[in-house]
Design a protein around this nucleic acid. Sequence first.
DNA 1: CACAATCATTTGCATCTGCAATAGTCGCAG
DNA 2: CTGCGACTATTGCAGATGCAAATGATTGTG
Lengths: 126, 126
Amino acid sequence: MVQQIARRLNRSMEEKLSPHGLNLQQFAVMMTVHEFDGLTQTEIGERFSMPPYAISRAIDHLEQANLLKRRQHPTSRRALTIHATEDGRTLGLALFEIVNDVNNELTAPLTDSQREQLGGLLKALL
Amino acid sequence: MVQQIARRLNRSMEEKLSPHGLNLQQFAVMMTVHEFDGLTQTEIGERFSMPPYAISRAIDHLEQANLLKRRQHPTSRRALTIHATEDGRTLGLALFEIVNDVNNELTAPLTDSQREQLGGLLKALL
DNA sequence: CACAATCATTTGCATCTGCAATAGTCGCAG
DNA sequence: CTGCGACTATTGCAGATGCAAATGATTGTG
């Protein structure tokens, strides 16, 4: 059941993301950068256990699309820090709405108290 | 959260499946055939909304591994029906154990009543 | 200081996936 | 009974994904 729901969620997200030219991984990176500007790539990856090479490629794409840019880490010459561009910050706001929409859509069959209950149970499983 | 849990679930399943040389899709097909012998490929796909080409390829693999075989549909010359071989039936039993193990592992942090609650809430979302 | 181990990131390559096109079959309208 | 549109299954191809190796930087140890 969890898997079926997750698949529905994914499809739903991808649909709403595709007009922006993003896939789910790129979306996750954008959200993280929107919340914390200036993290290194590894740090971003740790936020949702995404392997380094995936981050690398997601950022390739996002940098190409002029949503992010890489900069030298101030103290380490091997790390890079990731920053949202103007376009990136704008898109970030649109992304928040998408998450909300999808969440509401998914949990529409539940009452508010059920929603809380579900949240609690799921958190216990993490 | 749903997605994170689903990913954990997937990894866990794949781990236990890999000794048998199966991936998740092939596993799903095996379980369905184990439950209903003689369905057409499309019917199998409908059980968990898997596109026809994915079924086709999963069965290619499973037939190769001598777990299933395709037969002509008794009344339609375009459809094929799928049947478990002896090996396939044996493996099917092992697969049931895997599902149980993974379920228990996942829901270990919950009490029995919480488990039921979660089940109910998830079902409502399907 | 030199060397080995570790770290952050990238890349080559093989495999997996999804979409769209194909081949063959079937049902039905005229 | 003919032809067209819908159905089953498969396949070619392009893009995505995962692993493991490569690159360059850094730390620690003797």
